[in-house]
Simulated assay, not measured.
Amino acid sequence: MTTEPGRRSWRPTFPDRRAARVRRAELILCFGLLAQYLLGMAVNLFVKIPDDHPGANPPEYFGGVLKSVTWASSGGGLWLASHAGLGLLLVVVAFVAILLSFGSHSRAAYWSSIVGFLAIVGAGFNGGSFLNYAEDFSSMIMAALWAVALASYLAGIYRIGR
């Protein structure tokens, strides 16, 4: 972390600062994913999703997901609304992590943020699918993709720091 030959500074050099921003974003995502896990457990244990909510059993998947997630965010109760809202926020922060990774010149930052983002988006779509069709395998896929996202960000934090 030198700025000039023979002179040390507490501030990292320019590429290091960009990599540090990616690490910080990925650390925030890890904590967000842990909170999402806990909210998901609360939804699983304490929320009964009605069979006839808006978006349930749609003829078209994406339209149903949009209606279901809108319903979950506004009329699905505190736990479900918190889970859906945090999921949408995680998508935004994961996209920001990708943008930050472009300037970091770190392949580890780039790939961990891409894989994490895709896993979060996939988990979100499977959450929407669970709302649409109430199939347990959608919930399992959502949980598996959550684990992929968390592992990706943890690996990125480790690799970027080396």
Rank of each mutant, 00 (worst) to 15 (best):
G75W: 07
G75L: 09
G76F: 05
G76S: 13
G76Q: 05
G77A: 03
G77T: 12
L78E: 12
L78R: 14
L78G: 13
L78Q: 14
W79R: 15
L80H: 11
L80F: 13
A81M: 08
A81H: 04
A81L: 07
S82T: 10
S82R: 10
S82Q: 08
H83M: 01
H83Y: 14
A84N: 06
A84F: 11
A84L: 07
A84R: 06
G85M: 05
G85F: 05
G85I: 13
G85C: 03
L86E: 13
L86F: 11
G87V: 11
G87W: 14
G87Y: 12
L88F: 13
L89Y: 12
L89F: 09
L90H: 10
L90S: 11
L90I: 13
V91C: 09
V91W: 04
V91K: 00
V92T: 04
V92G: 08
V92N: 02
V92K: 08
V93E: 01
V93G: 04
V93Y: 03
V93H: 05
V93P: 05
V93S: 04
A94Y: 00
A94E: 00
A94Q: 01
A94D: 02
F95D: 01
F95W: 11
F95P: 04
F95L: 14
F95V: 12
V96M: 04
V96K: 01
V96C: 07
A97D: 02
A97H: 13
A97N: 09
L99P: 05
L100C: 05
L100M: 08
L100H: 02
L100T: 02
S101A: 12
S101H: 00
F102N: 00
F102C: 09
G103M: 15
S104A: 15
S104H: 09
H105I: 14
H105K: 14
H105G: 06
S106D: 07
S106G: 14
S106A: 09
S106R: 11
R107E: 01
R107Q: 11
A108S: 11
A108W: 13
A108M: 12
A108D: 05
A109R: 11
Y110L: 15
Y110R: 15
Y110P: 08
Y110F: 13
W111K: 02
W111N: 05
S112R: 03
S113I: 03
S113V: 14
S113H: 06
I114A: 04
G116P: 05
G116K: 12
G116R: 03
G116D: 01
F117G: 03
F117H: 06
F117K: 01
F117W: 07
L118S: 06
L118K: 08
A119D: 01
A119L: 10
A119S: 10
A119N: 06
I120Q: 01
I120K: 03
I120V: 11
I120G: 03
V121P: 11
V121Q: 01
V121T: 12
V121F: 09
V121N: 00
G122M: 06
G122P: 09
G122R: 12
G122D: 07
G122A: 05
G122T: 07
A123N: 07
A123V: 03
A123R: 02
G124T: 15
G124I: 10
G124C: 13
F125H: 10
F125Y: 06
F125N: 07
F125L: 10
N126A: 10
G127D: 06
G128I: 02
G128M: 06
G128H: 08
S129N: 10
